[in-house]
Structure formats: structure tokens, C-alpha cells
Design a protein around this nucleic acid. Structure first.
Lengths: 155, 155
DNA sequence: TACTACAATGCATAATTATGCAATATTTAT
DNA sequence: ATAAATATTGCATAATTATGCATTGTAGTA
């Protein structure tokens, strides 16, 4: 069971870091990582991982992880904006007050909009301060947890 | 030849609008659209179209178009910002003056940044006006054409 | 501890897809 | 107009992948 978890994780890494054209290729790479399984098991693993097999258009095919396993480049950029801009977050009831570096409130606010965290109903930016309104039914803990997940190192 | 072009286009539509689990299924749908080809030809078509076969995680598999065939949701959002915000565009040499609805210049300007039109070297926003600088070698016609392509209904 | 229920796995093979090759169709060059 | 070059296609089948079934492994419960 735990073995499978490790194997799935390894499969993801291998697919991310190699151009894998067939399950046989992947089986060999897995073997090198210490996992001995049959093609049948691997097929089931790939299914569970939502791995797709994609054509490059002319020369061949390769396996690819689902999009959700990659954060898009623009999303990374917004996450960076948020990480570099935010100084502190404090709450008063359902209003959160985010202090940012001077002049950064707008871009951080915009980034939060784009990231569309479900816990945030709305936000408004000054120069170095953002007010955010928690969505009904959401707590500050929900939002902080969402931050931890989506935007590591911001608490 | 032209026949193939039409067929590829039809294949894309069918994949977009149906959950297709096998090439046989797609062959049948193509037949209904008046295209009679073999599985071999379809496999080559799908390869050329960079179509992938993806797992949904547990119940089965389906064909999917490459990402570039879909405009991302956030890009759609920016396109909307631009479409709804812009009132007029006029040029003086290599400077374009965009009039927007009041208070919308910033978001339209930001959206144009994100959309990264190659014709725009830079832009700066006021409240309801944006100045854009054409990249060297680009004309206002180039930009207007780019608008037509990327942002329909904005001239 | 023993039993039950569920998850994981391999074997064998069915299902699905990709490809080599030859033929045909289309485009390009003369 | 004709020949050469290139693209497309079907046939047959090789390659690849998915799955039914039985077995094994694991977790949960009495």
C-alpha cells in the first residue's frame, strides 16, 4: 500500500524528467529505481495518475502528467508576486488586513484575484494595504491553510 | 488534400464536443459527417493534430486536443477586460492612444501586458487613457490586425 | 487471533493503436 | 504537357495498452 504510494510518486518524477514513449520504457526506469511491477500494474497506475499519452505532432508519442500537476508559468508569477509582496496578514472578524511592501498592494491584490482562492469574497487595495473579505462560511484558518497549499511560505 | 484539411477540422470539433473513448468511436462519428477513412489514417490524423489520449483517473479514457487549441480561462478573462474596457484607439506615429471607460485603464493595460502582443513595446495607463508604444518595425495596421485576431470585435 | 472486506497484483489475452510497405493522389518542376 | 517529387491512404500486422479473472496482500472488525 505504502509501496504503491511511493511508486506512484516515482512514476510522476520519471515522467516529468524523461521523455517516455512506452510503458516498457517506463517499466525499465522503474526497475532501476527498485520497483518491479508488470505492465498491467503500470497501466493501472498511469490510469489512476491521469497520465495521458500525447503525440508531438510528427515524430512520436510521450507520456505526460495532467495539467494540474504543473503550475502554469503565469500562475507561478502571481504566486511570486504574492510571496514577495506580503509582509503580514491579520484578521478582524471576517476582514483580513494584508500589509504589503509599499506600492505592491495593487499587484498582490490583482494576483490574489487571479489565483481565485475560494475563501476570498473580495479585496481592495491601497498602496501597501489590502483588505480582504472572507467568503461566508469560511474562516481565517481556511484561508491561511489555502495560502499554505497554494502559496508556500506565506502564512 | 483540401479534403484532409476539412477532415482534420471536423476531427477537432468532434473531440471538443464529445467524449471519445476510442478511434473506432471517432471513425463512426466521422462517417456520420461524411468522412470515410480507415483506422490507420485516423491514427495519423490524430498524431498530426497532437491529440492525446487521457485517463480520467478511474472510469476510462478519452481523447483530448492539445492545450493550445483552447484559450485558457484566464486569457479569456483578459480578452474580456480589453473588449469591455476599450472605447477607441488612435495613433500618432508610433504612439497609440487608447481611450477606455473611466477607471478601466489600469486593468486594460495590465491585460494587454499579459496578452503580450508582439506589436506593443510598452504601455502606460492613466485613469481612462493608455499610451502604447509600437515596437520598432511594427505598424499600427499590424497591431490592429493582431487585435482582430486575438481580441475579436476590438478595432 | 480469525474472519471479512477491500485493495493490489500478475497472468493471459482482448482491445486499441501505430507503422511498414505498396499503391494512389496531388503538387511541383521542367 | 509530362516527369519527378511529395503527400496521402489502405492493408496487414506489429506494437502497445487495457482488462477479466484469480490470487495475494492488507486493513478493519469481532
Amino acid at each position: 500500500m505504502k509501496e504503491r504510494h511511493n511508486r506512484l510518486s516515482t512514476i510522476k518524477d520519471l515522467i516529468k524528467n524523461n521523455r517516455i514513449d512506452s510503458q516498457d520504457t517506463l517499466l525499465e526506469l522503474l526497475k532501476e529505481e527498485g520497483f518491479e511491477v508488470t505492465q498491467a500494474t503500470l497501466s493501472r497506475d498511469l490510469k489512476m495518475l491521469k497520465v495521458g499519452k500525447i503525440s508531438d505532432g510528427w515524430s512520436g508519442y510521450y507520456y505526460s502528467l495532467p495539467e494540474s500537476d504543473f503550475i502554469s508559468e503565469s500562475e507561478k508569477s502571481y504566486i511570486q508576486d504574492v510571496r514577495r509582496g506580503i509582509i503580514s496578514i491579520e484578521f478582524s472578524a471576517n476582514i483580513g488586513v494584508i500589509k504589503t511592501r509599499p506600492g505592491h498592494a495593487n499587484s498582490v491584490c490583482f494576483a490574489l484575484d487571479v489565483l481565485a482562492l475560494p475563501e476570498i469574497l473580495g479585496s481592495i487595495a491601497g498602496d501597501d494595504t489590502i483588505f480582504i473579505i472572507l467568503r461566508e462560511g469560511m474562516t481565517k484558518e481556511d484561508l491561511l491553510e489555502s495560502f499554505q497549499t497554494r502559496i508556500p511560505e506565506v502564512n
